[in-house]
Amino acid sequence: MKYNLKVIISICVLIVGIAFYFLVFKTSDQIHYITVPVSKGNINQEVSATGEVAPIQLVTVGSQVSGQIETLYVKLGQTIKKGDLIAQIDSTTQQNTYNTEQAKLESYQAQYEAAEVQLAVAKSQYDREVTLYAQKATSKASLEDSQSTYATAKSSVVELKSLISQTQISLNTAKVNLGYTKILSPLDGTVVSVPVEEGQTVNAAMSTPTIVQIADLTEMKILMEISEGDINKIAPGMTVTYSVLSSSNEVFTTTLKAIDPGLTTLTNGTYVQGGSSDAAIYYYGRLEVPNTEGKLRIGMTTQDMIKIAYKEDVLTIPMSTLSEHNGKTYVRILENNDKVVEKQITTGLSDGINIEVTSGLNEGEFVVQSQMSDQQINSSVNSMQRPGRMM
């Protein structure tokens, strides 16, 4: 009987211990919901792109004649006007050619004047012989001699006239080539590149050598790289905001001028048909922006945002609260009695974070964004409180 009493006492102690464990150490597994209210706001759908600054007008000024650069009249960064002298190339050869053609022209002109006098004399002699022959006062041989002399004089005049024309053309060419030794600016702008030096010899026989590059920096273009996935969302005339790394806090606004019809490699002249399909495809969107203050420089990188669509004061919820079943969109609503109800909704414009709700929800309702149990909460808290190991 004493043995049975000990067994009963042990069982009672065990029951009390189990009860104490569940009451003190065993936590509940209640679900907690994290919600966000359905509220009104603005939805701004944008496409981001990276761009590069370039001048709208960039001219490479070369030399059409070969020779040594005697003098460079400009330096890098200098502002010049159209017609300003940029460089002088040694013009000895061109000057000599011009002088030779000029001398030939003068000689032919003198010969032409003499030939015209001879022609007049020959014509007069021929006319006289014709009259005398009609009166039977001269022989036929004399008439024929005067006729031959007249024809020869006429031929000489025609030949010299042709030589004068040819020499005049050669002289004009020599004059143009002589003018090519003076390199003049074709536009107002800034010298952005000077790849040659005084004393350097340039050879125009194979290709046109570059003397300077001149750009109009008062108006620039920005070439934005727009991805293949976004290109059909974008059209000229859309509003674009952009900033540069040197003034990242300053945002400029303009409009999209144009979109190139071909991909960037085609625009750049490096497109090869049948290239790797793994390569990313981009298209240039073009902006034209004023640069009167000179803040934009050639080659600068821009961060651009193209505004696709905008809606103001519409119902919005986070996109993370959405779920889809059978092609329909649903959200979970937390009602006053902590009951979760699933609702079908229709959506509109999205900015990638929030989305417009066009029907199915009312302002002030709470949509479930996520949920956690007590165990998950405790586990998260413990992991944050656990000290890191010393290495």
Rank of each mutant, 00 (worst) to 15 (best):
E129H: 03
V130A: 01
V130P: 02
T131L: 10
T131G: 06
Y133D: 00
A134H: 09
Q135N: 08
K136Y: 00
K136F: 00
K136E: 02
A137G: 11
A137R: 00
A137L: 03
T138V: 02
T138S: 10
T138I: 01
S139A: 01
K140D: 11
K140S: 06
K140H: 05
K140P: 00
A141Q: 14
S142Q: 14
S142R: 14
L143W: 08
L143Q: 07
L143I: 06
D145H: 05
D145W: 05
S146V: 00
S146T: 06
S146H: 06
Q147N: 14
Q147K: 15
S148F: 08
T149C: 02
Y150M: 10
Y150Q: 07
A151D: 13
A151L: 15
T152E: 15
A153K: 06
A153L: 07
A153Q: 02
K154Q: 13
K154P: 06
S155G: 10
S155A: 15
S156D: 14
S156I: 10
V157C: 02
V157R: 14
V158G: 01
V158A: 15
V158T: 14
V158M: 12
E159N: 15
L160K: 07
L160C: 05
S162K: 14
S162Q: 12
S162W: 10
L163F: 09
L163K: 12
I164W: 04
S165M: 04
S165L: 06
S165Q: 11
Q166N: 13
Q166T: 13
Q166A: 13
T167N: 15
Q168C: 03
Q168E: 14
Q168H: 11
I169V: 11
I169D: 09
I169W: 08
I169F: 09
S170F: 08
S170I: 03
S170A: 14
L171M: 11
N172I: 00
N172T: 02
